[in-house]
Amino acid sequence: MMVHNLISTILITGENIGVTVSLAVIFGGLAWLMYRSIKGREVDRRVIFLFIFVAVATPIIFTITFEFKATPIVRALYDKIESLPENSTVLLSYDFDPAMAPEVQPMANALTRHCLAKGHKIVYMCLFATGQGQLERTFREVIRPEFADKVDGIDYVNLGYKAGNEGVLNVIITDFQKMFPTDVNTVPYDSIPIFNNIKSCKDLDFIVSIGGGRPGIKEWILFVGDPGDIPIAAGVAAVVAPQLYPYYPNQLLGLLGGVKGAAEYENTLKDNYPRFENSDTPAIKMMGPQTLAHIVIMLFIIIGNILYFREKRLGKHK
């Protein structure tokens, strides 16, 4: 039924013959494999790889996108930023490397858009050395082209990377300047207007850690959020998200988990801010490949179980 709905939607809209042909190939192939499994034939792993490749490539080549409604855990983060009064100071920590970037960079960019559009000030920093490069991407892809009127040092500041992992957090909970005497452009801390009323993390209105590795959100909660009673939220890779549920909602106000969380956030932002109607939404685009790949994986699980029960019936499994 689900597959039928997917195919019929594509056929009815008739927008793209490439999508139709690709889906026909994928699901036709899977139906054939299912028939073979009923006959007791195993599926070679190279065939699985081929199907996953086609399932991921088709929505990228022919562009299949979906609309997503924000789940409560994503909505909580969005609402928190919405509810902060104008000129609040939000810290965005880029605690990730390029490997995680496809999942979490869209979150970082969407959060930047939201904060700046709402009139908040942003303090950027990173606990990963390679986070600095990712931070530069946000400046290049979002701030400079979309918020050219925002001024470095007044509306946002880039503190960059500092070695020391949780040691950095242990210091900035009491004194920012001690750890960051200057920003990345070597502007002294005292000369940066954004820090006029900020001495430590305790003076920030909100902190969002984006990443999924270590040091990351757990360290932010342990060393900053809990001791300083500072509201914290996170955007993390999908594999890490389930581990963070124990912290929600008391120690973690909201959570964006993987591409799905990022897509929900992008969608909510687009719905509520017309100025972002034409902004780049990589997470929404990535949901196409992810959704189709999930369907293929689910069908392979079903095929595997058909084979298993067939063999069990024939007494091959004890």
């Binding site: 039924m1 689900m2 597959v3 709905n5 997917l6 939607t9 979906f66 609309e67 997503f68 799905k260 949901m287 992810q290 959704t291 999930h294 369907i295 994986i297 689910m298």
Partner: peptide, 8 residues
């Protein structure tokens, strides 16, 4: 996995 799927 199904919760990600809008085609249900």
């Amino acid at each position: 996995m199904l919760r990600f799927n809008p085609y249900m």
